[in-house]
Design a protein around this nucleic acid. Sequence first.
DNA 1: CCTGTTCCATGACCGCTGTCATAGTAGCCG
DNA 2: CGGCTACTATGACAGCGGTCATGGAACAGG
Lengths: 198, 198
Amino acid sequence: MAVSERGPRERMVFSAAQLIRRDGVASTGMREVAAHAEAPRGSLQHYFPGGKEQLVNEAVGWAGRYAAGRVARFLAALPEPTPGGLFAQMVRQWTDEYESKGFGGGCPVAAATVDRAESAASTREAVSAAFAEWTGAVALALSDMGVPAERARPLATLMISSLEGAILMARAERDVRPLTTVSRELGPLLDSAANATG
Amino acid sequence: MAVSERGPRERMVFSAAQLIRRDGVASTGMREVAAHAEAPRGSLQHYFPGGKEQLVNEAVGWAGRYAAGRVARFLAALPEPTPGGLFAQMVRQWTDEYESKGFGGGCPVAAATVDRAESAASTREAVSAAFAEWTGAVALALSDMGVPAERARPLATLMISSLEGAILMARAERDVRPLTTVSRELGPLLDSAANATG
DNA sequence: CCTGTTCCATGACCGCTGTCATAGTAGCCG
DNA sequence: CGGCTACTATGACAGCGGTCATGGAACAGG
């Protein structure tokens, strides 16, 4: 799965994101990406003349778009949209993965931040853009649920921060407890913001 | 600073933590650690016969102990200890660093998690222990401030998760905004838990 | 003095990495 | 067919990584 469809270029970006989120940027080799994508090694320099940095940046961008896109689908899946319900869905995506497929992977955007924020300026910008896109999507969703405009972005930042940190702790402990904890603790706070006067 | 005192062994562990939190585990070389610690390269195999993995694990352990130890000192610095005040201090340590020294480094425990959780079992355990020690210290502090026992650990997990995630976002954006945001948004929630009936 | 322990010095090894150079194939256009 | 572009194949290179082998200081105890 997750390999055959679409062109080799897109497959390589996708594979890069998968491998990065498991092993980090530095430990993920270009040859390994090509092999994982079942793409010819020679295509690397053809599609990514900017080298590894370009590939990583595109993988981060893909992850940001993916995360932002999920938000809308989470909303659609909620019978009665509430901020706490959205956050629970966001968290659940991770608990589901960890419980069904193990704790092998984290967030590729976080991995790129840790490994490249200081050493590659363009990657740091890509990571920043990914977080911004994701935060924007969540903030928009919050607004739609009645959260006052000036509270939407801060709460979105809080949601994503907590989720990212909980992912780290869950991977470390090999236990979804941190994820379920932040979901339960933050839910009421988020819901109460939806009914407050702006 | 931070180099001359103490023995070479301890200096190398400390330097490893510093370099890891800036560049990640994989991008930090052993020779680089020795040079940064102004320690002889030959001492590496003497003090760390377990190789890089041992050095990384000790650096993570050091970071966990350091973070846990800070909690008590934060408490002592607060005229009127409250959960929100403690969290504000924890966040402030990072905003202070970022504003005075730039966004060069993140949390070494997070870096080790991202880079080694899947590839080195002993490092994953070290990271788990570090988070546990830190969480335990925060939970203990919360209990001392009147937070009901069964709420202390979940809230401590929430605090550390949010902080870790905010550190990531702040580094990515090169802006302390995510840090100040989570502090402001979470403060009231934390304080309200201190006065609740257990 | 000899002996052992602790610590440091240095060079070599092998594997892997990203990148490049070069050449080859496929397919469309005219 | 020639010519052009898109894509693939492969080998080499230079660099760096962690690790190991070997040997030399420094210094203690006997």
